[in-house]
């Protein structure tokens, strides 16, 4: 449910970026939404596509969502693992199970294409 308010924030940001770069329209928006960011990418897209037509600057903008795979660092041996899950299970090097998340919770506006 908070995806809609975040999509609204992004659209406000896009309008101010368009103004800053003297552009009339936003053509494409690239964001990174990690699976562990707490944001559901599909709901975010729904919110974006529902709100974008309300403004001539963002109307028709294509939203491209990159979803980086979560990565974890073993706190015992430093080994880094990637896993789709919220916990990678056992460390493949030392067989222990305590990890620190080091990627996969991103929530970033990466790039825009404007004209």
């Amino acid at each position: 449910m908070h995806e809609l308010s975040l999509a609204h924030e992004l659209l406000k940001k896009l309008c101010s970026l368009a103004k800053q770069h003297h552009a009339d329209r936003i053509l494409e928006v690239n964001v990174a939404i990690g699976p562990l960011s707490g944001i559901v990418a599909d709901s975010f897209r729904f919110g974006f596509e529902a709100l974008a037509p309300a403004n001539s600057v963002t109307r028709g903008a294509v939203l491209v969502i990159d979803s980086p795979l979560p990565s974890y660092k073993c706190i015992h041996c430093g080994n880094i693992l990637e896993s789709q899950k919220t916990h990678p299970g056992c460390c493949l090097r030392c067989n222990r199970t305590n990890f620190i998340l080091c990627g996969g919770d991103e929530l970033l506006l990466l790039q825009i294409k404007i004209e």
């Binding site: 975040l6 552009a23 970033l108 506006l109 990466l110 404007i114 004209e115």
Partner: peptide, 14 residues
Amino acid sequence: TSHRRVVDVFEGLL
């Protein structure tokens, strides 16, 4: 303004 261009932003949505 009619030229298409790409702008790197790299800012957090939050």
